[in-house]
Amino acid sequence: MNRMARLTYLQRLFYRNPRGYRSSELAELCGTSQRSINRDLEELQTEPYYLPLVLDDDWRWRLMEGHRFTLPPVHLSLQEAASLYLAARLLARVSDEPNPFVGRALMALGEALPPEVGAQVQKVAATHLGDADSRFAKVFEVITLGWATGRKVRIRHQGLHSAHIREYVLSPYLIEPSSVGYATYVIGYASYFEAVRTFKLERISEAELLSETFEVPEEYCGLALLSRAWGVMYGDETTQVTLRFSPAVARRVKESRWHPSQEIEDCQDGGCILRVEVPHLLEMKPWIRSWGPDCEVLAPEALRQEVAEEMQRAAETYRRDPASGASL
């Protein structure tokens, strides 16, 4: 590997192993001379890495305790920076919990942008700074560090329909936001299940970074699995969902790419039919209901019946006199 690749690799090694390494061990891992490694260790402590390395009595180099993972400078075009700003805004809008790291990222981005727009971005950032010591912020920090460095994390998580908090050792393979659940999810191998599972970060009460490392299996391709999902619920088998939209909303439906598998067919009355293939139907239901009477489920029949019954119950609710309900 060339020197730049080696420096990046060394940085990752130190984050993965808090005990550190002797320079001879690093030379063997990198396939280079000990003399080259010593030069690399000096460079890692200067710009742009500023890695706070400590040499212990047993000649092991390690990261200073309490150091936070930092990235070297990234050079962006104005349009790339604007894209990151929009992505961060979307993430902030679909999060159950305020994420102070979104605010920090926007603040840093605003400082780098031209003053005319940088001031606007920083005003937005100030509304998202939140509490860096909140439970969610601490969980987010640990999970992302484990994900980035390939280290396992111990989590305490309470399922939506469970009265108990369970403890798992998790190998975080992937982090994914969801506009469906207004949340952020971590996907990875969980010890209790001995299988890959999805956990909502907002339901994790505690997270601890462990020294034990992991490797993502070569056969695992989370992004490919998620490409078939409507949100974060994925699977190998899919079901075709067929929806008919009224002429009043057909143009709006055809404006967007709702799912990679979608097919749209025009109807003679000006409406349209949308077909998608998804592994789970649950995440689609709120989206279907959001169209009200302008969306009709044609297939599968079980989904059609579920939505029809929910719509009927909603209609019954609105037929009642509000005064007969609970006091406001």
Rank of each mutant, 00 (worst) to 15 (best):
217 P>N: 08
218 E>Q: 12
235 G>E: 04
226 L>P: 00
221 C>D: 14
218 E>A: 14
221 C>S: 13
219 E>L: 08
236 D>N: 09
247 P>A: 08
241 V>M: 05
241 V>R: 01
230 W>C: 07
250 A>Y: 04
236 D>Y: 07
229 A>W: 02
241 V>Y: 05
248 A>V: 11
226 L>R: 01
230 W>Y: 10
218 E>R: 12
236 D>W: 07
243 L>G: 05
234 Y>N: 01
237 E>M: 07
251 R>L: 12
224 A>R: 13
235 G>K: 03
233 M>E: 12
238 T>S: 10
246 S>D: 09
238 T>G: 03
230 W>G: 03
247 P>G: 09
248 A>I: 03
236 D>R: 10
252 R>Q: 13
241 V>L: 05
246 S>T: 15
247 P>Y: 05
243 L>C: 07
228 R>M: 10
250 A>M: 06
229 A>K: 00
224 A>M: 08
238 T>W: 01
227 S>W: 04
218 E>M: 05
223 L>I: 12
232 V>N: 00
251 R>K: 13
239 T>M: 10
242 T>E: 14
221 C>G: 04
234 Y>C: 03
245 F>K: 06
241 V>T: 06
219 E>G: 02
252 R>V: 11
244 R>Y: 03
242 T>P: 01
222 G>A: 05
250 A>G: 06
237 E>W: 01
249 V>C: 08
223 L>F: 08
227 S>K: 15
231 G>E: 03
221 C>V: 05
228 R>S: 14
248 A>Q: 15
245 F>C: 05
235 G>M: 04
238 T>F: 00
225 L>A: 14
216 V>L: 13
247 P>W: 04
219 E>S: 14
216 V>K: 11
223 L>H: 09
245 F>W: 08
220 Y>E: 15
226 L>T: 02
229 A>Q: 02
225 L>P: 00
242 T>R: 14
232 V>A: 00
237 E>N: 12
234 Y>F: 14
232 V>Q: 01
216 V>N: 06
234 Y>E: 03
244 R>H: 12
251 R>H: 10
239 T>R: 13
244 R>A: 15
243 L>F: 03
231 G>I: 00
233 M>K: 09
252 R>T: 14
252 R>I: 11
246 S>P: 09
239 T>Q: 12
218 E>F: 05
225 L>C: 10
219 E>Q: 10
247 P>Q: 11
225 L>S: 14
224 A>Y: 04
219 E>A: 10
252 R>A: 14
252 R>N: 07
224 A>Q: 15
225 L>Q: 13
233 M>L: 15
252 R>C: 11
227 S>H: 13
220 Y>K: 02
247 P>T: 07
231 G>R: 01
227 S>A: 14
236 D>G: 10
241 V>A: 08
244 R>D: 13
233 M>V: 02
223 L>T: 13
239 T>W: 07
250 A>N: 08
239 T>N: 11
248 A>E: 15
249 V>G: 04
250 A>S: 15
230 W>V: 06
251 R>G: 11
229 A>T: 00
222 G>H: 02
241 V>S: 03
247 P>H: 08
248 A>T: 12
252 R>G: 05
220 Y>P: 03
247 P>I: 09
224 A>C: 07
231 G>W: 00
231 G>D: 02
233 M>P: 01
219 E>N: 12
216 V>W: 05
241 V>P: 04
250 A>P: 03
252 R>F: 13
226 L>I: 04
244 R>K: 13
217 P>V: 11
244 R>C: 09
